[in-house]
Simulated scan of single mutants.
Amino acid sequence: MPESKQRNKGGYEAPRAKTAAPKPNGRFFAPVMVGFLIIGLAYIVAYYLTQGDYPIPGLTNWNLLIGIGIALVGFGMLTRWR
């Protein structure tokens, strides 16, 4: 019976981890992030203090959603801050 060809079995090498650290954010990132958080909070506070009449009178309860959306942009940036 013929013999099969021998395979070249190399040793197992584990995958290498990435050595490059993520780059830090720019100098503008933190002030913009804090700005979104403060503007969102101010928008919601203005909505409640004026009993739904302002910041935009015709939107009624949508004003609350807009304020929460602005604050969520700030929270989203907060998760990416380095």
Results as ranks from 00 to 15, higher is better:
79 T>K: 11
21 A>T: 03
48 Y>K: 10
8 N>P: 10
80 R>C: 12
51 Q>W: 03
75 F>I: 15
27 R>Q: 10
39 I>K: 02
66 I>V: 07
55 P>I: 00
8 N>E: 13
22 P>W: 08
28 F>K: 06
82 R>W: 05
55 P>N: 07
47 Y>V: 04
77 M>F: 01
42 A>H: 11
44 I>H: 09
62 W>S: 04
60 T>F: 12
60 T>Y: 14
3 E>R: 03
19 T>D: 00
35 G>S: 12
75 F>S: 14
24 P>Q: 00
49 L>M: 14
43 Y>G: 09
78 L>C: 03
10 G>S: 11
51 Q>S: 10
67 G>C: 06
79 T>S: 13
29 F>L: 00
11 G>V: 09
23 K>S: 05
76 G>K: 03
78 L>E: 14
21 A>Q: 13
42 A>Y: 04
62 W>I: 06
19 T>R: 13
70 I>E: 13
6 Q>L: 06
79 T>F: 11
74 G>R: 15
6 Q>M: 03
42 A>C: 06
66 I>A: 02
71 A>I: 13
46 A>K: 07
58 G>C: 02
44 I>R: 09
39 I>A: 10
18 K>V: 06
39 I>F: 15
23 K>A: 01
44 I>E: 12
45 V>A: 05
78 L>M: 11
33 M>H: 14
82 R>P: 11
63 N>C: 10
42 A>S: 08
55 P>W: 06
43 Y>A: 12
77 M>N: 14
28 F>G: 07
63 N>W: 08
19 T>N: 06
25 N>P: 09
10 G>R: 13
60 T>L: 08
48 Y>Q: 13
80 R>H: 08
73 V>F: 13
29 F>V: 04
70 I>Q: 07
59 L>Q: 00
36 F>G: 01
73 V>H: 14
59 L>G: 00
22 P>N: 08
51 Q>N: 10
19 T>L: 06
2 P>R: 10
64 L>G: 15
19 T>M: 11
75 F>W: 15
43 Y>E: 01
6 Q>K: 14
43 Y>C: 04
48 Y>L: 03
1 M>E: 04
9 K>R: 02
70 I>A: 08
47 Y>C: 03
44 I>K: 02
77 M>L: 06
21 A>C: 02
51 Q>C: 03
55 P>D: 03
39 I>M: 06
40 G>C: 01
63 N>E: 04
50 T>Q: 00
65 L>H: 05
64 L>Y: 15
58 G>Q: 13
10 G>D: 09
33 M>C: 14
37 L>K: 10
80 R>P: 08
51 Q>Y: 02
41 L>N: 07
44 I>L: 10
50 T>N: 01
53 D>R: 15
63 N>T: 12
62 W>A: 11
22 P>H: 07
79 T>A: 01
78 L>I: 05
47 Y>W: 15
27 R>N: 10
25 N>D: 07
71 A>Q: 12
50 T>D: 05
12 Y>S: 01
7 R>E: 11
38 I>M: 06
19 T>C: 00
41 L>D: 13
63 N>I: 00
28 F>A: 08
37 L>Y: 12
77 M>H: 03
37 L>W: 09
3 E>Y: 04
9 K>E: 09
3 E>K: 14
16 R>D: 10
77 M>G: 11
25 N>L: 01
40 G>N: 11
15 P>D: 00
39 I>S: 04
61 N>C: 03
57 P>L: 08
72 L>H: 15
